[in-house]
Design a protein around this nucleic acid. Structure first.
Length: 134
DNA sequence: TTTTTGACTCTGA
DNA sequence: ATCAGAGCCAAAA
């Protein structure tokens, strides 16, 4: 049958926002992880699309950062995102979250964080090249 | 409906 | 460390 998700719970955007609200204060998550939690692994970019309109206080969209601990984007001045994160006790570098692995949420690795990019074509295993310095 | 855009991510140079 | 290229996904035009 034609699966049309007119219901907010069914909407991708709603699931993304719900996942973001689950991020505890003082923790951060990535677009990719949120996508997986929302049931759409590999849709990191789409998560950004949703968060782009997240200019409200209902969802802690500032806790969503890019992979590797990069700050990611922000609708307004990126400085606001830093300030918010710092306000929760997270040390933020000019361009990265310090001790990203420590503040990351969820703490456990996700079931299927599909590499889903250039890696797939190469077909090779990807190296843990998450360069970060604490 | 098709095409374009964009708070992404990874690999390779 | 930094830049460019390629792939993926969903929403907006």
């Amino acid at each position: 049958m034609a699966n049309r998700p007119p219901q907010p719970e069914r909407r991708f955007a709603a699931r993304v926002l719900a996942a973001v609200r689950r991020i505890p204060a003082g923790r951060v998550s990535t677009y990719g992880d949120i996508a997986t939690l929302a049931g759409a692994p590999g849709a990191a970019r789409a998560v950004g699309t949703v968060l782009r309109s997240c200019g409200d206080g209902a969802t802690p969209c500032h806790r969503v950062v890019a992979a590797g601990g990069a700050l990611g984007g922000w609708t307004g001045p990126l400085e606001f995102k830093r300030v918010r994160l710092r306000g929760e006790g997270i040390s933020v570098d000019l361009a990265r979250v310090q001790e990203f692995g420590r503040h990351r949420w969820p703490p456990s690795h996700l079931p299927a964080a599909r590499p889903g990019k250039a890696g797939r074509q190469a077909g090779r295993q990807r190296s843990p090249t998450l360069a970060r310095k604490g």
